[in-house]
Amino acid sequence: MNTERAHRFGRAAHLVGISGIPSAAANDVGVIVLNAGLVHRIGPFRLNVELTRRMNASGYPTLRFDLSTLGDSGASGESLSRVQQVRADVADAMTLLGAQSGCKRFVLIGLCSGAENAHRAATSESAVAGAVFLDGYAYRSTGFKLRYYLPRLINPARLVRSVARRLHKSDKSASQPSFGVVFPPREQVRDEMAGMLERGTKMYFIYSGGASNYFNGRQQFRENYGKLAAHPGVEVERLEETDHTYILAGDRALLLGKIEHWMRQHFPPQSLT
């Protein structure tokens, strides 16, 4: 029998999502997975399906769902900013998963825009006990520029490849619509992260090789956020070999293993403690 259930839910019954409740739920922490960009709730290459089922197998109740106007979810009809909508949608998702599983605390997981939305929701929701940010916020630092330019200056062949790649990308971007987002100021993000850590929120930052245009070394996290990098509630990882959306099955398996390990470390299944 399928352990997943389909739901239409939310304050305007406008959201669509799939809950997964393990038959022997061994945790009071639920996992909620957010949309990556415009991809519907199954995630890029079905990443969110694999992730939620892996979490279910480890005893965590899960929900993958579409935020307002994404995937199969409609608009709520309210006059809200996008940030307010995201926060209200995540609150609706926590209410649903709480009612389905009895969870009172939640971990949010998001890739790219999903990481930004996880951050927005986590700043305002005390029920968010943890968050996994996949290619989340980071800012080009002096260290970033040194790590980027020095090897190219030393190795002219690498410089040529780099220029060629940039030209190719600018050709592409000229002919395609741009949906780029502007990150909020670093100081704002740092202060919000500090507030979350003070509240006890655990945070796991995983940067792929696909994010190398703005994050190119683990030490950059310290360059960006100073002493927060050493906080025991923060873990930072860089999976240099992977691409931004984890197109290879082996890379997805690597990512899921990392997340599962982090979850077990910070939110151990109760039956095993």
Partner: peptide, 20 residues
Amino acid sequence: TNRFLKSRPATSVADQWLGF
């Protein structure tokens, strides 16, 4: 190399079609 920083081993792309 627009997707990956370095070429990947042949085994990592085997038995898949574009993400699946």
